[in-house]
């Protein structure tokens, strides 16, 4: 279970999160939605120690991880993986080296063994043939698949997907949605997905939380969102340009 409790975060004068509290039950998929710059990515980065809250607590499986040192966070990152918005494959490494890196660094495997395991993961996402190519030589959709393979190398219990379908064609986006669903159904992974993709949100999410003006506007099931008469929620879901939402 993941718990964010009263998280506050500001960058300089800009207050991004002002008392956000969310709980994600084990084995469920929570979609975080909201306008660009609302603080969705900022919030999820606190879970893996890439950002530290100004105040508030983060509890992962009953352990308070708020004040862990950078070194102690590596254990958290081993069981909680993250797929970044821009794939973030390392340009100077081959696809294989990118996927083998967590095996070599987290699991301390030798290069040969790490490569062998990485090839298996690449085969699972249909990318084995591209193993020796550089990230720049493959398209954005394929890069995203490699990034997902890299995140799943160590069979994490928790996975954060930061806008996993942004910039992908509909088929590639569907593939990512199916993958998130199968992770939950087959392996019991707990996932937080940051997304604007309304189609994905309503087909995959177990729960949805909307961040607006530093706080949680609505936290509920997809049906709660469909039925909501909150004008801010309605405007976001329908994508109407006119409404109360400040962009």
């Amino acid at each position: 279970m993941i718990e964010f409790i009263d998280i506050h975060k500001r960058f300089g004068e800009k207050r991004v999160l002002e008392g956000v509290s969310i709980t994600v039950e084990a084995g469920r998929v929570l979609y975080l939605i909201g306008t660009s710059g609302a603080g969705k990515s900022v919030l999820v980065k606190h879970l893996v120690g890439l950002l530290r809250p100004d105040s508030g607590r983060i509890v992962l499986d009953g352990q308070d991880i708020t004040g862990l040192s950078e070194a102690a966070f590596y254990a958290v990152r081993r069981k909680c993986a993250m797929v970044f918005q821009h794939s973030t494959l390392f340009d100077s490494m081959t696809v294989l080296d990118n996927v083998a890196l967590p095996y070599r660094k987290h699991a301390r495997m030798k290069r040969a063994e790490a490569n062998e395991r990485a090839l298996e993961k690449l085969a699972l996402v249909g990318m084995r043939e591209a193993a020796w190519r550089l990230p720049a030589e493959i398209g954005a959709g394929l890069q995203k698949r490699v990034a997902i393979a890299r995140a799943l190398t160590l069979d994490p219990q928790f996975v954060i997907f930061d806008e996993p379908t942004t910039g992908l064609d509909p088929l590639a986006a569907k593939h990512v949605d199916d993958l998130i669903r199968s992770l939950r159904n087959d392996t019991g992974v707990t996932a937080i997905v940051v997304s604007h993709d309304i189609r994905s949100i309503f087909t995959v999410a177990d729960r949805i939380a909307m961040i607006y003006q530093g706080g949680i506007r609505l936290d509920g099931t997809p049906d709660d969102f469909r039925r909501s008469d909150d004008p801010v929620v309605r405007q976001f879901i329908t994508g109407r340009p006119d409404g109360p939402m400040v962009i």
Binding site: E70, M82, T88, L101, P102, H106, A151
Partner: peptide
């Protein structure tokens, strides 16, 4: 700025 450094930290590098 492209979060590759964050990705390194996620890989225990």
């Amino acid at each position: 700025v492209t979060e590759q450094v964050d990705a390194l930290r996620m890989c225990n590098a």
